[in-house]
Write a protein that binds this DNA or RNA. Structure first.
Length: 896
RNA sequence: GCGGCUGUAGCUCAGAGGGAGAGCACCACCUUGACACGGUGGGGGCCACAGGUUCGAUUCCUGUCAGCCGCACCA
């Protein structure tokens, strides 16, 4: 990043002590993001020698605003990208936005209506589309700026929009190629129609939800007056488009009816009784009215029996001329009216309450109308099959893997995809119709003449493509495909795709089969699936409930890092999480803790300090232990990140930072820093800086802002943390013995603190401490750490010997390697002390019993791994030693 | 109907074939020279239930119950 130097922040203060004791994210986040962007460190491809690693961002709606789902999704992606960047990859995080056909068009139409009372038709297509573009230019960078506020390290120089010229060309090419191969066709079919949006929808844009309805049993009399059939229907208003009544061919009750003619009530029309095995004789009356234009199953029946397909409901959801006097009524009004009239005229046999699932528009919740119309479709089976085969070959990994099953099931049962939308905002279908020969010309570039007859009298299809049609190409269209660009060659296939499970079918499946079809490869190797974010009470966040939380508000109040850390530690693979402000508060506290640990280090490493190299020979127990723990932490975080276990990774560093570094090591370090051994002081400073440096690196992908801010203040080479190297385990830091020894020292300290607390001794009161070490080795250890023990426990006089005569008037505890006594004449109550010891004895005895029982089991000794048996043996020994000491102690007390 | 997820401390949730964990909340004490967005100590759980596999199950398998979510739906 050449000319860009560090931002200059903490180190500008005269002294770290002048830094505010509470971290203020608002003061630094924008400055740091600007620094990152300016430095070019997010731009991929600057070092061709590095291995590429690419993630494409799931494009949010260009005129939408960030919600917590986006925040979560982008945080996880950014963690991966930042980690990979630090680990030496040429990391590309490709951002962009989606034109979101229906949503955006609806939004602009609404404003138009509010501002001028005009509809899009009043304006005309061209003017309206212009308006949408104006809207896009006005609000289009809102969401991308919000993604910046979150800290996402996107390569903005490669930002894409689904309606960009390049991407549009990719869309047209895919359409034309599929059309020529017969994989896209146009046909008269029943599709899902939203009367409010006035457009066709694909199957997955329909949400089925249970509705309380009525099953009407209606008499259809025979024309000859010799009887009747009773049909059951939930939609009597469609009867004007009935063309038959079907019964099962084997249904004895109705066999004689087949072929007879019925008179349709409320009309003068006659319709036949037909036989079709689609009818379930068990359900309802066993007679089904057939309405091919208004029901997908009836449509199939209609095709089989070559029936007419009249429509009695129009695209606006109102009854048509076919409904005679009912024309113009809405579906709902017509249903009520028809039911009432049928009843009044004696056709209604009965009405039964019925709950059934009804399709609703996923966008506006209007009841979807199965509607017969001419639409464009993608033939799915030939595309799904190669995808299934590739999945079976293991070319795509789902994390967690259970989502593969859902995915496969969907692909196995997928139906043709309706891709035409009766909208104006989107990619216009690249198909032209010839007025003369009626032929269709599909072309990437606007054709001058019909490719069938050469006529120039051609006009383009009015409709646009489903937005997901362009999203399906996103991983390669954004990289330049169909051109063989450098980016496409270098970054495609991308590596990981991070997404919530709710768009697996909408988006992931479609990228998979178009990717395979057009690039010959899976567009990504791994799909990292996360869940949905819910309100604190577990309900979905929604506009109607008013329980949505604006991530920008969270960022304002707590900082982007706190939001990120909350979302990250709340992640468990594939599962939903609940959002609560208390959690964000917890994250903010953690960030503040890190901030203050840094303040401590800086205050003790004055400007200009020349830090010595780490020198293992000069380390004492705290240094050996903390670096050993740091190694374990580096290893764990790296492994968890490699497995996309974000929550666990975050938790592991949290524990290290707070418990090990802050609570213990910093406290240990004070002994040296406030002492007067200059050489040791320098070594401890070096260790402090090293641990803090490493900790910041490990934390950076999770909480990038605060870590960058702190890191640039440290006396270290390098310009920015964002491009610093990811830590590696240092074999020379490994020190299992130190881990055990430190554990014993800490256990001793805790035991003394516990005694003090139980005696209600205020921390300010120094107490005498007697320690009896179990053997020479333990004695050496405790002697070496006497200063720490004395400081941590506020000890006045200190006596460390090998086990010997115990002070009588004392409270005591048994720890690994030692017995500790607080000889406090007058404070000790023999009865309470005995009771305390007895409770401890009971606890230890039960532990020992458990261990001994295990060890006494020959099967356990024979079959369990040796290490497990040895560990159990060691535990038992430890318990026995402690119990013996305890028994001796109690004996002494009884004699007093 | 088919498939999946969840059930662990008061709450929110991790976890893992071998001594039950965190955060918040709670109790007690503490303005110690990084931090009260803090420190120290503490209480609290037959890990939903019943079987099975195993030397050993809270963890793996089967079933039951409860909550949730997909997919498919017959009017």
């Amino acid at each position: 990043m050449g000319a860009i130097r560090r931002i200059g922040s903490m180190q500008d203060s005269a002294h770290a002590a002048l830094l505010p004791p509470a971290y203020d994210p608002a003061a630094v986040e924008q400055k740091i993001y600007a620094f990152w962007e300016r430095s070019g460190c997010f731009t991929a491809g600057r070092d061709p020698g590095k291995t590429p690693f690419a993630i494409v961002m799931p494009p949010p709606n260009v005129t939408g605003s960030l919600h917590l789902g986006h925040a979560w999704n982008n945080t996880l992606q950014d963690i991966i990208i930042r980690y990979k960047r630090m680990a030496g990859f040429d990391a590309l995080y490709l951002p962009g936005t989606d034109h979101a056909g229906i949503a955006t068009q609806t939004r602009v139409e609404k404003t138009l209506r509010e501002e001028s009372g005009l509809s899009r038709y009043d304006l005309g297509r061209e003017a309206f589309v212009e308006r949408v573009w104006a809207w896009k230019h006005r609000f289009g960078n809102l969401i991308t700026n919000q993604i910046r506020a979150l800290g996402a390290s996107c390569d903005w120089s490669r930002e894409r929009f689904t309606l960009d010229e390049g991407l549009s060309r990719a869309v047209r090419k895919v359409f034309v190629d599929l059309y020529r191969e017969g994989l896209i066709y146009r046909g008269q079919r029943i599709i899902n129609w939203c009367p409010r949006c006035a457009t066709a929808l694909s199957d997955i844009e329909v949400e089925h939800s249970e509705v309380q309805g009525t099953l009407y049993y209606v008499r259809y009399p025979l024309v000859n007056g010799e009887g009747e059939v009773v049909v059951a229907t939930t939609r009597p208003e469609t009867m004007f488009a009935d063309v038959a009544v079907a019964v099962h061919p084997d249904d004895d009750r109705y066999q004689k009816m087949v072929g007879k003619r019925l008179r349709l009530p409320l009309t003068d029309r006659e319709i036949p009784v037909i036989a079709d095995s689609y009818v379930d004789p068990e359900y309802g009356s066993g007679c089904v009215k057939i309405t091919p234009a208004h029901d997908p199953n009836d449509f199939e029946v209609g095709l089989r029996h070559q029936l007419e397909m009249p429509q009695c409901i129009g695209p606006d959801g109102r009854l048509t001329a076919w409904a005679g006097p009912y024309q113009g009524l809405t579906r709902e009004a017509a249903r009520a009216q028809v039911a009432a009239d049928l009843a009044a005229q004696g056709y209604m046999v009965k009405e039964e309450a019925l709950t059934h699932a009804v399709g609703h528009c996923s966008r506006c919740e209007t009841v979807v109308e199965p509607y017969l119309s001419e639409q464009w479709f993608v033939r799915m089976q030939p595309l799904a099959e190669p995808a299934l085969a590739a999945l079976a070959r293991g070319e795509l990994r789902f994390i967690p893997d259970r989502f593969e099953k859902v995915f496969v099931h969907w692909l196995e049962n997928v139906r043709d995809w309706c891709i035409s939308r009766q909208l104006w905002w989107g990619h216009r279908i690249p198909a032209w119709y010839c007025t003369d020969c009626g032929g269709v010309t599909a072309a990437v570039d606007e054709p001058q003449r019909c490719e069938h007859c050469g006529s120039e009298r051609i006009h383009q299809d009015e409709d646009v493509l489903d937005t997901w049609f362009s999203s399906a190409l996103w991983p390669f269209s954004t990289l330049g495909w169909p051109d063989e660009t450098g980016d496409y060659a270098r970054y495609y296939p991308t590596h990981a795709l991070v997404t919530a499970y709710d768009i697996l079918f909408f988006w992931v499946a479609r990228m998979v089969f178009t990717g395979l079809k057009f690039t010959g490869r899976m567009p990504f190797r791994e799909v990292v699936v996360h869940g949905l974010i819910r309100a604190a009470d577990g309900r979905k966040m929604s506009k109607s409930l008013g329980n949505g939380v604006d991530p920008l508000e969270v960022i304002d109040r707590y900082g982007a890092d706190a939001l990120r850390f909350t979302l990250t530690t709340g992640t468990s693979p594939g599962n939903d999480q609940r959002f609560a402000f208390e959690k964000v508060e917890g994250s903010r506290h953690f960030i503040n803790k890190v901030w203050n640990a840094a303040r401590f280090v800086l205050m003790n490493v004055p400007e200009g300090t020349e830090l010595p190299a780490l020198d293992r020979s000069r380390w004492e127990l705290p240094e050996r232990w903390i670096l050993h723990r740091l190694n374990e932490t580096i290893d764990a975080v790296t492994r968890y990140l490699d497995r996309y276990e974000f929550g666990e990774a975050g938790r592991v560093i949290y524990d290290f930072a707070w418990d090990d570094f802050c609570d213990w090591y910093i406290e240990f370090s004070k002994l040296a820093l406030y002492g007067d051994d200059e050489a040791r002081k320098q070594q401890v400073r070096a260790v402090l800086v090293c641990v803090l440096d490493t900790l910041l690196r490990l934390l950076h992908p999770f909480i990038p802002f605060v870590t960058e801010e702190i890191w640039q203040s440290l006396p270290l080479p390098g310009e920015a943390l964002v491009t610093a190297a990811w830590p590696r385990v240092q074999p020379e830091w490994d020190h299992p013995a130190a881990a055990r020894e430190a554990a014993a020292v800490m256990e001793l300290v805790r035991a003394v603190r516990n005694l003090r607390a139980e005696l209600n001794l205020p921390p300010s009161r120094a107490v005498p401490l007697v320690v009896h070490a179990q053997d020479d080795a333990w004695q050496t250890l405790f002697a070496a750490n006497a200063a720490a023990i004395r400081r941590f426990c506020n000890v006045s006089t200190w006596q460390l010997t090998l086990a010997g005569e115990a002070p009588a008037q004392a409270v005591s505890a048994v720890t690994s390697g030692a017995q500790v006594y607080l000889p406090l004449a007058g404070v000790v109550d023999v009865a309470t002390e005995l009771e305390r010891l007895r409770k401890e004895q009971v606890r230890l005895a039960s532990e020992l019993e458990r261990a001994e029982k295990k060890l006494a089991n020959p099967q356990f000794v024979a079959k369990a791994p040796a290490a497990v048996v040895a560990a159990e043996q060691a535990k038992a020994d430890d318990f026995r030693t402690k119990l013996a000491a305890l028994a001796a102690r109690m004996e002494l007390f009884r004699r007093v």
